[in-house]
Every structure is written in C-alpha cells, then in structure tokens.
Design a protein around this nucleic acid. Structure first.
Lengths: 294, 294
DNA sequence: TGCTGCCATCAGCCACGCTTACGGCTGGAG
DNA sequence: CTCCAGCCGTAAGCGTGGCTGATGGCAGCA
C-alpha cells in the first residue's frame, strides 16, 4: 500500500512547484522532501517529477497520482472532522479561497457577518487565481472556493466536488473621463479598435476573453498595458492611458472615479462566479455559502 | 492529519473482531497492534474500541471512523491501480467475494471462463456471509462482491458503491421422499406447522425470513435443526429429519436427491442476489460481472 | 567567471515502531 | 475451586526509517 504521508508530500510539492518550496511550507529541509519523493517514486516504480533547474513539474504518472493524492488527503481530513463532529466539537476553522476582485467586494461582508455569528471559528482567507484551487478543496485545505470562469474559458473538471453558480457578473466598458468616444451613442469594438486597451497578459483568462470578442467582431485590438489587477486597470484608465472591460463589482467599489462607464453594443461579456466545496459540506460551509449568496 | 496505516489497522481489527486476530493476519504481534491502536485513540482523542474479554468491538466513534478508514484504504489501493494502468500494466489479481451457495453454483463457471480468457490474472475467491463484505469492497480487498438479501432483511447502505441486481432466486419447499405431506395438493404453512423445520440459527437471515413468513401466515413453526449450509440441510431432509425452504440453485446441483420439491401456496420466498463493486470498475471487473450475469 | 537558485547524495543522529517478557482479566474445563 | 487458555495492556530493549546538516552538480544570470 502506498504511503499517505508521501502522497500528501507529492500534493504539496505539486502545489508549490518546487521541492524547496514545499519543504519550506512544511518546515522540513529540502533534503527530507527529496528523499521521501525518491522513495515514493521507488514505491510506484516510475518517475513522478521532471527535475528542472527552476523547480519541478509532474510527469504524466505524477499528474495521475496527484488527483488521487488530493482525494486521499481530503478523505483523511474528512475522517478527522467526522470524529470531531461525533464528539460534538465545533469545527474550529473555516478556510475560504477566492480570486482577488471577489476578495475585495463580495467576500468581506460575508466574512464579517460570519465572524459575528461564530466568533470561536478561526477564519482564513486565501488568494487564488482560477482555474487553480480545486485541488485544495479536494485535499480539504480549503473549505470553500470562490472561483470564476470567463466566457470561452473551459470549466475545470469538478473532480467530484459540488459546484454551484453564485452569480453572473457583467463587464462594463470604462473610458477616461471626457474621452471623445464617451460621447458616441452606439459604441462597438470596431469603433474602438484604434484605442489603447488594457487587459491581462496573453493567456490570462480575461485577455483570452477579450481576444475572442475581438475575433467575433472581426477586429484586432491593441493591448497597450497589461495588468491582472483591476484596481491597477482602473487607475490606468483614470489616468487616460487606455480603455478596458472591468467587472461591475469593481465599479461598485470604485466610488466616484474619474471615468466614464459604458457598454459596447456588440460585446457584452460576463463572467460566471462559482462556489466550490465538497459534497455534503458541513454546517459552517453551508452557512458561509448562504451568506455569500445573500 | 491522521495516519493512514493506523486507520488500515483499525479496519483490519474491526474485520477480525480482535486485536490478536488482526495481528495474526498482518504477521505482527498483538502488542504492536495494541500500541498502534492506542496511539490512534490518542490522535483522535476518543476511545475507538470496547475491550471485551473475548475480543474488541467498536465504539460509536470507532464505527464512524471505520467507514472513512475503509474508503481511505480503498483510495490508496485505487491510486496504486491508476499508476499501474498508466504504466500499461495489467492488473494481476482479481478477488471475488461470494456467499456459500453462489460459490457452489453461480461462480465456478464464470471463474473458469475468466481464467481461460485471462490466464495471467490470479483469481482469488473469498467466502463471506451477507451482510458482510461491503467494507472489503470499499477498502479494495475485494474487487467484486456477490451478496444477497432475504425478503424482510434490510439492504445495507451501499456506501458509495455500485450495486446491481444479478437475479432473483426462488425458494422451494423440500420434503423427504415419500413424505405424507408431499401428496397434499395445496400445501400451506398452516398445514405444515406440525413438521420439524430446518433453517439457520436465530438471527441468521434465512431464519428471520422464515419466521416472518410464519408470522404472516399466523402460525408458529418449530425449527428442529439449525444449519446455515444448504448442503447439510439437503442431507438432513433426505434423511427424513425435517422439511425446509432452499434456494432453487441448490436443487439444480443436487442431482437426483431423494427429496420431494414443492411450493407452499401461502409462502413463496425469493432472495435477491446482487453484485457490488466500485463505481467505475476496471475492465476485468466488468468482464467478470458480465460473465456472472450470463 | 563568480553567484544564486535548484536538486541529489552522504553521514550521523534521534525517534518511532517493532519484539520479547510480563501482569491483569475473564470464562470454561477438570 | 483451581487451573488453564484466551484475551488485552504495559515496560524495556533494539533496529530501521526519516530527519538534519554538509557537500557537490547543474543551469541561468550578471
């Protein structure tokens, strides 16, 4: 039988991306982790890691084993909670993973309300960019994951987890205050093709989404500035450096920023925001999910 | 995080019914097992076992943990198989659990055909009396379980496993050759209330079933002889010591036994025979299941 | 060419888990 | 009743497994 500790180690290394990183998180020396992984590879009779000079990546066998490792670690944690529940003890901790803009808008009120209702429960918040995080839910490092999908991006395999749509969030087009195009009645991507756009780096979901919209409209947009942080994008637009699509919730918090908010007639993107948790979640997880939905 | 080895130990002890028994199966000394279990109890912070003079039984917490322990052990074995499959290796072993009468009738031809088709696969057969065996499928000690349910007996919780009805098997009433009642046109339980009956011990499923039938018919039957082995029952009936209900398949194999086969007009019991295996079974398991269905 | 990350290997040490040995307990046989 | 045969638990030793710390190889970068 495989050793669960070593599998947990594999998951940790896969997540950290390097043996040294995992070792640090676990308060071990890299040597110890390296030795354990070597033994795991001996156990399964195959290489699990590609050793690169800048860290490690998983082999195909490693990837296959990783999924199981995460569910096994998750099952071990689940077993522990079952016992705690049987002993009538309250879960002492609730860990929520979220992407940045939800972390700034959607999550804080829910967390605040929850803390008030359950002062004894230690709340933890983690930042995670989609499509990451599913593995951490599987392995019970996260109780609840808030993730999203941009149109066109594939929805990750739920791996036996429960995924529910929390809301669908419109994107709006923002321009610098007083921008010439802001006075145009009917804005289209074609009409905005000459502008400087601001979006994520190539391959990042919102960039992919933007490019698909442009393709659909038959135009090529020039992305002049790249940032994945919507607060940065907002600031760039305010400074007159370009135009961008941003989620509506970001604007709610922006107060009276010096921008113009419009919509493009031929491109009205929206991203779906999902909650992900184990099937049969605990009472606290359910409550937190309800608060997030409210 | 709990230790998977200790959980596996718990499962083994639960199955064996005693620490000493589990130790023997695992080629350890009872002392080692006892120490590990004590540490597991310390880990979870609760007693898991009731120490009786004649072995151990699980506490409520122990029962709760056992289910998880079995799924964890099963997941570990599943992970191992996934790796084997990824490496292109054939599964080397297939373990089938069955109850005795199926083991004598239904299973052998399927096993023989399978062995011919896959001579490299080591086949193992285990005897198990229902409702046992589900845990062994969960923990992957069994690939396939053939189990049954007598009418009136509860169907065990499938625990996330796949359970399909293989067949429904009639019971027939057998009497010694030349028995006076064999000439009666319409046999009823009431009419047979004066006979010596042969059945399992109190609490055994077929005994429970017989008593429920008797209750329904408003009579009390006298069970003179107790055996759970239908070959023994058959021999007792042949010897003129009583009458009994036996599954039809037992009679198929009995050849020309010196008995009379009849049916009771007011009691025609049947038991359901089920196949139990993991969701997403391997190719070999599917094939064996198909052979059993044929 | 040094420097700085990374990973692997080796030697040494500590702790965990095994065995052996013993004692307490209960239930059945002589 | 006594004795025995099973259980289970504890205590003391010992070996192995897994940790640390040191060293070396390797790739990328100034």
């Amino acid at each position: 039988m495989l050793d669960a500790h070593r599998l947990a180690l594999l998951a940790e290394v896969a997540h950290a991306g390097s043996i040294a990183g995992a070792a640090q998180r676990l308060s071990f020396t890299p040597s110890a982790v390296s030795q354990q992984l070597a033994k795991l590879e001996r156990d399964v009779g195959a290489r699990l890691l590609h050793r690169n000079p800048r860290g490690v990546t998983l082999t195909a066998v490693g990837e296959g084993l990783l999924t199981h490792a995460e569910t096994i670690v998750g099952e071990l944690r689940t077993a522990e909670r079952t016992v705690r529940a049987l002993l009538g003890e309250e879960p002492a901790q609730l860990t929520v993973g979220t992407f940045a803009s939800a972390g700034a808008t959607l999550v804080p009120p829910a967390l605040a309300g929850f803390r008030e209702a359950h002062p004894a429960v230690a709340l933890r918040l983690l930042d995670l960019e989609p499509p990451d995080g599913y593995g951490l839910v599987s392995s019970r490092e996260l109780d609840l994951l808030i993730t999203h999908r941009y149109p066109g991006a594939p929805l990750p395999d739920p791996r036996g987890l429960e995924r529910t749509l929390l809301r669908s969030e419109r994107f709006r087009l923002i321009l610098p205050e007083g921008h010439a195009k802001a006075r145009v009645r009917r804005l289209t991507l074609r009409g905005l093709a000459g502008e400087d756009w601001i979006s994520g780096s190539p391959g990042v979901p919102n960039r992919v989404c933007l490019e698909q919209l442009a393709d659909a409209a038959g135009v090529r947009l020039r992305v002049a500035h790249e940032s994945r942080d919507y607060q940065v994008i907002l600031a760039l637009v305010e400074a007159g450096l370009g135009i961008a699509f941003v989620p509506e919730s970001v604007l709610d918090r922006a107060g009276r920023a010096r921008i113009e908010v419009r919509d493009a007639a031929d491109a009205q993107p929206a991203r779906d925001v999902f909650l992900v948790h184990h099937k049969r979640p605990g009472r606290l997880v359910t409550e937190m999910a309800d608060r997030l939905r409210a």
